[in-house]
Each structure stands twice: as structure tokens, then as C-alpha cells.
């Protein structure tokens, strides 16, 4: 990507502010949505995006150009999300109210969620997926990321990611089917 080259050139020439602005302008919004679809809450997503940029900026000096800056950033963001979700999982395990109804109530009360019943059902279905399948589903379904890029982000093969997406997709469809059968 031409932008990656420009960002790195600016950074190495000491034009740090310009390099940083371009890094945010180019990837900030995409990274935000990647994080948001995984953690759902805006404030959590904002904090994790900040952490992602702090880590990326502090290690940009050691970035090797054998990977794309874009996939490298997604990789940092995904790791941040995994760490966050693992911590949250422990807290939820210790909490009394941890079920789908809680997630539904949380989304219904969230002023930044404006989805309909089907979209609510998709969110509930995705929340039930194992962490890796969740990331694969979100990257492919919402961000339409190529499997080759996804393989770099998740340090996996494109073939296994295709299979993983297929499983996740099936599970989501099944969940929606059940959810609406129960409603009807």
C-alpha cells in the first residue's frame, strides 16, 4: 500500500506528527469498527483503540516491512481485544448475571446500538462463538477482509480461516433460525 510507505517514510524522516496523523486517518476508523464489533461497547472500543495506537506507535521503529502495516495494526488490535475479552470473561464468570438476556438488555439500552431484531439476533449469535471464530466472522462479514490478509492478522492459513468462517456462518444462521422460531 502506498500509504504505508508514506507513513513509514514520514516517521523515519522525523516528521512524527504527520506520520501519526496519516496512520490514524488511514486506519483509525477501520480499526475502531473491528474492535467495536468484538467488544460491542463504544467506550471499551475507544479505550482499546487508544491502546492499539500506543503499542503500534511505540514499536513502529522495529516494524519490519515484510508484513503490511495494515495487517500489523489489525494484529495488535486483535491481541488487545483478546486480552480484554479474557479479562472480561473472568469478571463475568464471577458475576451473577451472565447470560444472553444480559447482552440483549445491554444492547437494547445502548444509545449507540440502532439495529433491528435480526441484527440483535446476529449480535447474540456472534457473542456465543469461540473467540477465533468470532474474529474471523467479524473480519469477513463486516469488514470484508481478504483471507490472505486475515491469515497475516491471525497467523493462520487462508484455508483454515475459510473453514472457520464457514462454521461460524452456519452457527449464526442456525441461531437466527432458532431465535425467530421461538419468537413466532
Amino acid at each position: 500500500m502506498a500509504e504505508d510507505k508514506t507513513i513509514l517514510e514520514l516517521y523515519r524522516n522525523g516528521e512524527q506528527n504527520q506520520a501519526f496523523n496519516l496512520l490514524v486517518r488511514e486506519y483509525g476508523e477501520k480499526l475502531y469498527w473491528h474492535i467495536r464489533t468484538l467488544v460491542l461497547d463504544h467506550d471499551d472500543a475507544n479505550d482499546l483503540l487508544q491502546n492499539t495506537y500506543v503499542k503500534a506507535w511505540n514499536s513502529l521503529e522495529t516494524f519490519r516491512e515484510d508484513a503490511k502495516l495494515y495487517t500489523w495494526l489489525y494484529r495488535i488490535a486483535t491481541n488487545e481485544v483478546f486480552t480484554f475479552l479474557n479479562r472480561k470473561k473472568i469478571i463475568n464468570f464471577l458475576s451473577i448475571s451472565r447470560n444472553e438476556a444480559t447482552l440483549e438488555r445491554q444492547l437494547a439500552a445502548d444509545p449507540n446500538f440502532n439495529g433491528d431484531k435480526v441484527q440483535m439476533s446476529i449480535q447474540k449469535a456472534v457473542a456465543k462463538l469461540p473467540p477465533k471464530q468470532k474474529v474471523v466472522f467479524n473480519l469477513r462479514y463486516w469488514q470484508e477482509m481478504k483471507y490472505e490478509d486475515m491469515a497475516e492478522v491471525l497467523d493462520s492459513s487462508a484455508g483454515s480461516l475459510k473453514a472457520s468462517y464457514h462454521h461460524a456462518y452456519q452457527k449464526v444462521v442456525e441461531y437466527i433460525k432458532k431465535d425467530f422460531d421461538m419468537d413466532n
Binding site: N17, F20, N21, V24, R25, G28, E29, Y32, W33, R36, T37, L40, H42, L49, Q50, Y53, N112, F113, N114, G115, D116, Q119, M120, I122, Q123, W142
Partner: peptide
């Protein structure tokens, strides 16, 4: 995306992160 962000969030993202 079924989610939204507070008004002006992305407009001020660059400054906030910087």
C-alpha cells in the same frame, strides 16, 4: 454496522489519539 458513535467522534479521533 448496527452501531453508531457519538457525534463528531471520528472527526476528532486524530486529535484525541495524538
Amino acid at each position: 454496522m448496527p452501531f453508531s458513535v457519538p457525534q463528531g467522534y471520528f472527526a476528532s479521533l486524530e486529535d484525541n489519539l495524538r
